Amino acid sequence: MASFNLTPSDHSTLILMGIPGLEAAHVWISIPFSMFYDIGLLGNVTVLYVVGKEQTLHKPMYLLIYMLALTDISTSTSVVPKALCIFWFNLKDITMGGCLTQMFFLHAASVMHSAVLVTMAFDRYLAICNPLRYDTILTNARIAKLGLVGLIRAVLFILPMPLLLSRQPFCANRIIPHTHCDHMAVAKMSCGDITANRMYGLVIALVVIGFDLMLIALSYGLIIRAVLRISSKKAHQKALNTCTAHICVILTSYTPSLFSFVTHRFGQGITPHIHIILANLYFLIPPLLNPIIYGVKTKELCDRVGKYTCKM
């Protein structure tokens, strides 16, 4: 009962401010937000439909693209619709439960997204370094199991974040200077000690981004070593071309999140609206670009998308 009294805001309403300092430009900012979101949603839904419909695409690589599209839709949909409500209708209210739920889903989807990128790197490693055993090692059933492991990891890693925050005392300040319920933005509203929240957020970011990037780097190190052993330049180019799409997706996915993470914790001299814009780029840019990258770079997927587009 005592712990319940420490959290008077459990059933109260919080205020999401959007982008402080740029309130007058919210309507204009909403134009690229809605455009990027709509195009990204259309692209990812198209990928889901085509891969789900075409039996010939029920292969490990395309199932991973399918999973990537799901995580892209989840991350952007967790944030953008509420942000647009703030920009268009000035609907800034959100309940504490709604805020913690949004936080869980957007961070869990981000961790799952990273797990899919690691699995894709392993897929490319097997395809280039061990092609004869590719079909026996990386079966559809194994991809499904790896996806399940990634999902369980995401839930276990992220669930403590809202649970820790739900135990924090929130006093008079219920204004969140952000477009969404980012973990640290909500934690800073607390009038209690948020050291555990800070440390947990930092550890999760370092473990997920650091460990996953290390595994991806290891995979590509082995790929480069295998490619350098091939004497044919044509074979070199073919092998590297199979990795181009994945490398582009890694750059579009990790770069905004790394910039956001660094500026949020170490960029005290950077104005708040820059922090918020950088944070939102992670939810807008990868879902927009990833379907385009795989649509252009993956001929089989491109052909199937073209076939269904022509039927419409």
Rank of each mutant, 00 (worst) to 15 (best):
M103E: 14
N197K: 02
A144K: 06
V296A: 11
M189K: 08
I247P: 04
S12D: 10
P81Y: 13
V111I: 08
C310V: 04
H107K: 04
V203I: 14
K92C: 02
I31Y: 06
M161T: 13
L301N: 05
M189F: 00
V45F: 11
T309N: 02
R153K: 10
R167D: 08
A109D: 10
L213I: 10
I223P: 12
L14D: 14
K82L: 04
V186S: 02
M67C: 09
P160T: 10
L117T: 08
G267A: 13
H113T: 00
M61V: 14
N140L: 04
F105D: 03
Q102D: 02
I247L: 11
G150R: 01
D72L: 04
Y66L: 14
I65F: 14
T95V: 03
G97N: 13
L251W: 09
P20M: 06
A127C: 03
V262A: 12
P272N: 15
V27E: 08
N5S: 05
I175F: 03
L163F: 15
P177M: 03
D93A: 12
L281P: 05
V47C: 14
T271K: 07
H178A: 12
M312Q: 13
M112E: 11
N241G: 15
A235V: 11
A205V: 11
P286T: 15
P131V: 06
N5C: 02
L206V: 14
P286V: 12
F259A: 13
S78T: 08
G18H: 09
R153Q: 06
I274R: 06
I209T: 14
M312C: 12
V47T: 15
K238F: 05
T139W: 02
I128F: 06
S190P: 00
I176W: 03
R225F: 10
S190W: 04
A144P: 00
F36D: 02
Y282G: 07
V208W: 06
Y62T: 07
V80W: 06
H107W: 07
V262F: 10
G21I: 01
I292E: 10
I39D: 07
Y282Q: 13
H275V: 13
L146A: 03
A141Q: 07
F36L: 15
